[in-house]
């Protein structure tokens, strides 16, 4: 069970208080009607899904009800940082298969 620091409550709380909400930093296209089908499909469904460092949204559902972001390693499950929506992470996304 993950131990998550809520940047709004400024405390560590148990995972049971939170709900994971998927990849972070996916911006809704500003002009949807001008976005082609492929780009719209990409926004809706396609994900980085890295085997490594991942930026993801969590909701402090049974706490302050705030969304925030977590930088977490998807293999070790180590949490590198948590930060508020609108802030940028310090750790970059990595992916074991990322080298090309």
């Amino acid at each position: 069970m993950l131990h998550i620091y809520c940047p709004h409550c400024e405390e560590y709380r148990e995972e049971e208080e939170f709900r994971p909400k998927g990849e972070a930093h996916i911006a809704r296209p500003k002009a949807p009607e001008e976005t082609d089908d492929a780009a719209w499909g990409d926004y809706l469904f396609f994900r980085k899904n890295p085997r490594g460092v991942h930026h993801e949204q969590w909701l402090h559902a049974a706490g302050c009800r705030k969304f925030f972001n977590v930088t977490r390693h998807t293999v070790s499950y180590e949490i590198l940082e948590t930060y508020k929506v609108g802030q940028q992470p310090t750790a970059r996304t990595t992916d074991k298969g990322g080298a090309k």
């Binding site: 998927g22 990849e23 499909g41 990409d42 469904f45 396609f46 994900r47 980085k48 899904n49 890295p50 085997r51 998807t74 992916d95 074991k96 298969g97 990322g98 080298a99 090309k100």
Partner: peptide, 18 residues
């Protein structure tokens, strides 16, 4: 579960979450 990792090697994105 590792499909996204392989896809990335080919420069592809998939509608997957592991």
């Amino acid at each position: 579960g590792n499909s996204s990792v392989i896809a990335k090697m080919a420069g592809l994105r998939l509608p997957l979450e592991s």
